[in-house]
Design a protein around this nucleic acid. Sequence first.
RNA 1: GCCCCCGUAUCCCAACUGGCAGAGGACGCCGCCUUAAAAGCGGCUAGGUGUGGGUUCGAGUCCCACCGGGGGCACCA
Length: 838
Amino acid sequence: MRDRDERVEMSSENDVHYDVHAVEEKWLPVWESLDLFRADDAAVTSGTKEKRYALTMFPYPSGDLHMGHAEVFAIHDVISRYWRLRGYEVLNPMGWDSFGLPAENAAIKNDEHPATYTYANIETQYASMKRYGVSFDWSRRLHTSDPEYYKWTQWLFLKFREKGLAYRKNSPVNWCPNDQTVLANEQVLADGTCERCGAVVTKRELTQWYFKTTEYAQELYDCLDDLQGSWIGKVVNAQRNWIGRSEGAHVTFDVENHEPVTVFTTRPDTLFGTTFMVVAVDAKLAEELVTDEHRADFEAYRDEIRKASDIDRLATDRPKTGVFLGVHATNPLTGEKLPVWATDYVLADYGTGAVMGVPGGDQRDWEFATTFGLPIVRTTQPPSDWEGEAFHGEGPAINSPAAGVTSGLDINGLPVAEAKSATIAYLSEQGSGEGTVNFRLRDWLLSRQRYWGAPIPIIHCPVDGEVPVPEDQLPVELPELRGADLKPKGTSPLGAATEWVNVSCPQCGGPATRDTDTMDTFVDSSWYFFRYLSAHDDTQAFDPALAEAWGPIDLYIGGDEHAVLHLLYARFFTKVLRDMGLIDWDEPFSAYLSQGKVINNGRKMSKSLGNGVSLGGQLAEYGVDAIRLTLVFASPPEDNVDWADVSPAGSAKFLQRAWRLAGDVTSSPGADVAEGDVALRKVTHKTVHEAAQLLESYRFNVVVARVMELVNATRKAIDSGCGPADPAVREATETVAILLSLVAPFTAEEMWARLGHPPSVAQASWPVVEPALLVDDAVTAVVQIQGKVRGRLEVSPDISEADLEAAALADPAVVKAIDGRDVRKVIVRAPKLVNIVV
RNA sequence: GCCCCCGUAUCCCAACUGGCAGAGGACGCCGCCUUAAAAGCGGCUAGGUGUGGGUUCGAGUCCCACCGGGGGCACCA
């Protein structure tokens, strides 16, 4: 009775309301002064501690943080805090991807410099991140728009150029008429619109800078195999599709009045069925081939095609068009003469820009042949019930060669794979073809006709041509432009800064001009994770020794809108840096996890729908911890979180329940847990054990559920079990505080203090699991007959299979269920299950 | 058209290498507290895994087909 009274007394003392905001205010300055999260390079370079590099995509500074940031930071912090508790030296840096168009557009609107908007927003976001309690190492903070950062972006550009991986070419490029700049292929969406602003992208013929991503296509593709499993599957799949590897052959055709023309095909076995050749109308080749007699027709057709928008060109169901160029090609297998046509259904920048027309095997060629009355020959035998037109499936080769046609090769009757290799072998022998691999990936167009980016460090000299800015003159800083000077006009605003543009040539000293384009901001973000290693080093981009010590990144978290943009570019940069000898690893991100979106009522949050949820408002209402907990608990990290389906109030309630435990504990710190209640201790140790496994596989929502169970069990122990003085209650509550510190650091810190520990819980270590406590005293074994549960037995967890079988067969309920039938087979899985087959 | 992923309770979601379908939460309901309500606290309820086959002693889990949802690529030869 007395005990019970004491408890009542105590709990009334603890009914003080848990003031989340006061707790936040209380701990932030304490953490700040303890400098808890600074990564120690020496600990890692010396090998004293094992490293973990945790990275989350750095934000673009547009306004304040939103719910999406809140989710990714919450998830990211779980893993980095977990690693720290496990005793790793953790590098967890943060910075800003601070070049980009929104700042420039804001500057035009408000008649100011883009830096004003940029750095004001950075400070706002910085304050919010601090308030959010993420365990970032702020000593490595960087902004890509700082000259001390973009100096090295420019340096890397020059190194890439030295290696022949950055070059200029004239080519039709994607042009956004709204942003008035060119775009990379990756920045044009599937529907032909601009990834940034949604305008319909058009084509322009311009001389622009490119990175030679295609040089690494094969490796970028092959390494995806190694990433499979540790990267989230859909991103690997998206990159595979984007790089788009196709195996096939190059086949060379002699052409009248021209050098021989090579085409790419994935079906060399259908070469006997080629009845024409088609060339991309916008390729230089078409212009070279056309005869004077057909030139007028060709040019009229080409001009008409150029006027069509990308959207029209992308439609796959439009009728085939084209013009005859007046020349013929020769089939290398048969010597047959094939008319050469120009068309818009062949792409100038894929393969060789020319294709062999095989109407019997390709639906597009079928339609083209039908439209223009060209012959159709089948070279693969379709099944008897085939009702379609072109047939590209499996079947024996026919008409290869056709009756009456002479050829040095005969593949009739061969299945597709064999017919392919036989054809390639023959062509190679004849010197008119070879097996090859083609990629869908194009080179990365990096020039942008906008102001707020890193200037391309090149000087154009009428005498010496392209001259790199000497390294000791880097960075090439942006000239001061503001407001209306920045208005998009189709050429870079930098061109207007004449004093900046006109320079003397570093080589000959004569008058020359700077390149006025800036780099795509994806260049900035392709290497920022290297710069974090040496964020303030003004002698090098990063220290290779630190890259060796810290790299590669152990877990990268971000959104899947970057599946083929940033992630592909960062992989490309890493491979080039490796080939420059600066690092010794092949892939930047050992593991990649993409977090889902935060939506509301099944829809993306947006102003027009009026379903936006303000992060600041939620934090004010429920507190930081409750919001973090809600986002982590809602679903597996990669799934979307629908704000309409979650309950931040429920999270806040749970945190209070946890917090109250700490006030109920009456034993002193360091109480001998060995004396504690074994049942509760088992729950505690099992929870720690499972939590570790769940954390390693990123199932953070389930970790939270386990902590909830532990809180419930501890509550029961206090109220109706061993009582608050039992050391097991202290052990359980301390464990709750430590586990909770991954998700709800403020509440955990407050609990830690109430439990009598000095700050910080972030410096605690991961609880050591006692294996003996993971073993149950008795387990329930299920006895099945024909797979149906017919009995249960309480058995020892280390019972032998034979003993369990005997016990099962002796169980009265089982005997009754067998009902005298013959036992044919008994499957025993000690100690959990026996299945009897009768 | 090609390539991936996912369908479990009213909802969000658990279920280790196939082994008792249910951990946690929301919603709802019942108590306690309260003059009352809200809040708070304690407790309770639920379906057989989208459909149809197959493999197996045993399938949410593996295989096949279909239905539904999501994503990537796409006149890429």
